[in-house]
Simulated scan of single mutants.
Amino acid sequence: MKKGILVMFAAAAMVFTSCKENAADKVNEENVAAAAERDAQAGDFPVMEFSKTEHDFGTINEGDVVEHEFTFTNTGKAPLVVTNAKGSCGCTVPTWSKEPIAPGAEGKMLVKFNSNGKPNQQVKTVNITANTEAGKELIKIKAFVTPKKKAAGTPEAK
């Protein structure tokens, strides 16, 4: 019972002591104008346009390390910054330039694939985080990995 009275007293205190000022009176007109200008320019995103978004290595042997360099152009109106790129597994490692790519300029992303322990058909993706409108871009690699021959006398060879 005492807890109930205490809670009601606390609620009543908040209601009676809350702010009675009009928040709209506190808005600075200069800030409104600056926000409107910023929002008008918000459509000027960089655009990451790849020459191709998928590469097929064809047939490779298990244990081969292959790489492909993807090229892209910033076709937007603002500098493009790639903040992260991550392969779908540890066998796929992307590297890229950390410098901003100016509008109209070209960038490159090198993707290495280590096929060790990855027999048969493989499809791997690289998720790219950048300051584009979507914020995420995707490229793919694929290969058919010929399995290693098993040594004679091992259980797998029978």
Rank of each mutant, 00 (worst) to 15 (best):
E37L: 06
E37A: 06
R38S: 06
D39G: 05
D39C: 07
A40V: 08
Q41T: 01
G43Q: 06
D44V: 06
P46A: 00
M48S: 12
M48C: 13
M48G: 09
F50L: 04
F50S: 05
S51D: 12
E54Y: 10
H55T: 12
D56A: 12
F57H: 01
G58Q: 09
T59C: 15
T59R: 15
E62N: 09
G63I: 08
V65R: 09
E67K: 10
E67G: 14
H68A: 09
H68Y: 14
H68S: 11
E69K: 11
T71V: 10
T71G: 04
F72R: 00
N74T: 05
T75D: 01
T75M: 02
K77F: 15
K77W: 14
A78C: 08
V82I: 01
T83V: 12
N84R: 13
N84T: 10
N84F: 09
N84S: 14
A85E: 02
K86H: 07
K86Y: 07
K86E: 08
K86W: 05
K86R: 08
G87C: 12
S88F: 03
C89A: 09
C89Q: 10
C89G: 10
G90P: 11
G90T: 15
G90Q: 14
C91H: 15
C91W: 14
T92L: 11
V93I: 13
P94G: 08
P94L: 07
S97R: 01
K98C: 03
P100W: 04
I101T: 04
I101K: 00
A102T: 07
P103D: 12
E106L: 06
E106I: 08
E106Q: 10
K108H: 02
K108S: 01
K108F: 00
L110G: 10
V111N: 03
V111I: 13
K112M: 03
N114W: 14
N114R: 15
S115I: 07
N116R: 05
G117P: 14
G117I: 13
K118E: 13
K118N: 13
P119D: 11
P119T: 13
N120D: 15
